[in-house]
């Protein structure tokens, strides 16, 4: 594997960033774990390859990656483990082909979730982004395939998008290794807590659903104080998600989100 760093001259195309050391599959000890989520065929595996120097198969059709792959890199002296996931359209449905990705995003505790999207279909991709932001605070939005978008005369106002979503937004062309350095910087900022995200949360659910969620959230928060995403848990329970229901029943939810069991939890005064 390519373990050497090199100077960030434009000629050095395989090294997108000066401080990046691709570690291939070496990921014994890592400081942070990064998950690559996103719709199918948006270039997740290509981003993964650019960061790790590995050669995950890529292909221009949705569903190329079906199992999760892991790799490592180090940036600015920190070790990262990065997980490439199969594409998903949504976290809200129960399709078995998307289970691997869904489970990892929900229960894998990545330190940072990088959402890779196709710049030419931003609206469609935002569906998943908004769902991920319901679950986690630590996310980076990587708007990939920006070269294609430009070719089609589409331009994206990254600053405004960043402001709307409350998380860092990076425009990349992963196949050309453009924007990878900025992506790394954003990942490291969010992972280390230097940059605090204020993610966009859904606002326009139908009123009766909002009420139901509100009612449950209040109870869930009393039983599991400190749960970071009680809203999501409530939503999933309302949809009859077996995984969530059994996690509540067995109290597993506590471990899933590393919440210490406080004596007398649930007895708020």
């Amino acid at each position: 594997m390519e373990n050497q760093t090199c100077s960030p001259t434009p000629a050095c195309r395989s090294c997108p960033s000066a401080n990046l050391v691709k570690l291939g599959e070496e990921n014994q000890n890592f400081d942070y774990m990064i998950a690559l989520a996103g719709n199918p065929n948006t270039g997740k595996s290509t981003v993964f390859n650019a960061l790790t120097g590995l050669r995950q198969h890529t292909g221009n059709w949705p569903g190329k990656t079906v199992t999760r792959a892991e790799g490592g890199f180090s940036f600015d002296g920190r070790q990262y483990k990065i997980v490439d996931l199969p594409g998903t359209y949504s976290l809200l449905s129960a399709s078995p082909d998307e289970e691997v990705a869904r489970d990892f995003i929900l229960f894998g505790h990545p330190n940072v979730t990088v959402i890779v999207a196709d710049a030419t279909r931003l609206e469609r991709n935002l569906n998943l982004v908004l769902q991920v932001l319901e679950i986690t605070d630590k996310a980076v939005f990587c708007v990939n395939l920006i070269d294609e978008a430009r070719r089609h005369g589409i331009s994206i106002d990254a600053a405004k998008l960043e402001e709307r979503l409350g998380i860092p937004v990076i425009l990349t062309a992963a196949r050309q290794r453009k924007g990878i350095h900025e992506l790394l910087q954003a990942i490291s900022d969010v992972a280390s807590g230097q940059r605090v995200c204020r993610p966009y949360r859904l606002q326009n659910e139908p009123p009766e659903l909002k009420e139901a969620i509100h009612h449950l959230v209040e109870k869930i928060e009393r039983l599991f104080p400190g749960l970071p995403n009680a809203r999501w848990v409530a939503l999933r329970v309302l949809e009859g998600d077996k995984r969530m229901i059994s996690a509540i029943q067995s109290g597993e939810l506590r471990q899933l989100y590393n919440i210490p069991e406080i004596a007398g939890a649930g007895q708020t005064t």
Binding site: S90, L92, S93, L122, E123, R124, L126, N127, V129, L130, Q131, H152, G153, I154, S155, I156, D157, A158, K160, L161, R164, L165, Y200, L202, Q203, N204, E205, P206, L209, L235, L238, E239
Partner: peptide, 23 residues
């Protein structure tokens, strides 16, 4: 539930995308 939820997510997605994308 699911249907109306998806509807509202896409509505919000469209509004954000409409703000930042120009063709």
């Amino acid at each position: 539930v699911h249907e109306s939820l998806m509807e509202s997510i896409f509505k919000e997605a469209a509004s954000i995308a409409g703000d930042v994308v120009s063709i």
